[in-house]
């Protein structure tokens, strides 16, 4: 790589935004490190499609709520700030839910109550309280996106494994060749059921711990 492209890259690396995003993505990936946000998200990981839609919804809610709260941060009175944050988040979640019902009806049927439960997702309130209240809007927005992506990567990873092993499909398309089934391969029914999600998450975190230790 020559100097002309490397220079803006290092300049970019020095910005606060970049450092915050990198932190959210690698060092403090929401699910495994902060144990936050795992509530309510696993139920939609039976299929990749629902997990992706859920991830997009959550990322948008975190990003927009962080931005809105950051813009309001000078006006929000200290003593009612949690309620104000919850109100902003709830409004966005309801709008997201209504949009899904209007334009992605089939998926919203499968997501049922779990979109609504984004309100109690610890990541969203955590970012509002921990970051947006003391940072400018654009950076809060990017922080929300980064945290949303960190969460999405785990959710989509779990959904990928569960759909692949549980139903032999990805995004609804069969991917396990017919010949394998003829040779005696069977879909793992456990993956479709709730215990499968717990075990997959457990193994994910194990893998991550081991990799992080090696890199250190």
């Amino acid at each position: 790589m020559n100097g002309t492209t490397a220079k803006p890259l290092t300049a970019l690396r020095r910005t606060q935004t970049y450092r915050d995003i990198a932190r959210a993505l690698w060092e403090a990936n929401p699910v495994s490190k902060q144990i936050l946000g795992i509530c309510s998200s696993l139920a939609v990981t039976v299929q990749l499609q629902t997990a992706i839609v859920m991830s997009i919804a959550l990322t948008m809610v975190v990003a927009l709520s962080s931005m809105a709260i950051s813009m309001l941060r000078q006006w929000i009175p200290r003593n009612i700030r949690i309620i104000a944050e919850v109100a902003v988040i709830a409004t966005l979640v309801i709008i997201a839910d209504e949009i899904l019902k209007a334009f992605l009806y089939d998926i919203s049927k499968q997501l049922s109550v779990f979109v609504g439960l984004i309100i109690t997702n610890c990541i969203v309130l955590g970012r509002a309280e921990g970051y947006a209240l003391s940072n400018p809007p654009v950076r809060s927005f990017m922080d929300g996106i980064a945290n949303g992506i960190g969460y999405s990567s785990i959710l989509i990873g779990v959904a990928f494994l569960r759909e692949l092993l549980g139903s032999g499909k990805l995004l609804g398309y069969p991917v396990i060749p017919e010949a394998l089934y003829k040779a005696g391969y069977v879909n793992n029914g456990l993956m479709v059921l709730a215990p499968g999600a717990f075990i997959v998450i457990g193994l994910f975190v194990w893998l991550e711990h081991t990799l992080l230790k090696k890199s250190r």
Binding site: W75, P77, I80, A84, A87, I94, E98
Partner: peptide, 22 residues
């Protein structure tokens, strides 16, 4: 008073947004 005004304005803005969306 400031807290009260903020809460009221917030409620109105949120409900207008929600009703429009719905």
């Amino acid at each position: 008073l400031k807290t009260l005004v903020f809460a009221v304005v917030m409620c109105i803005v949120c409900s207008i947004l929600l009703t429009t969306a719905s």
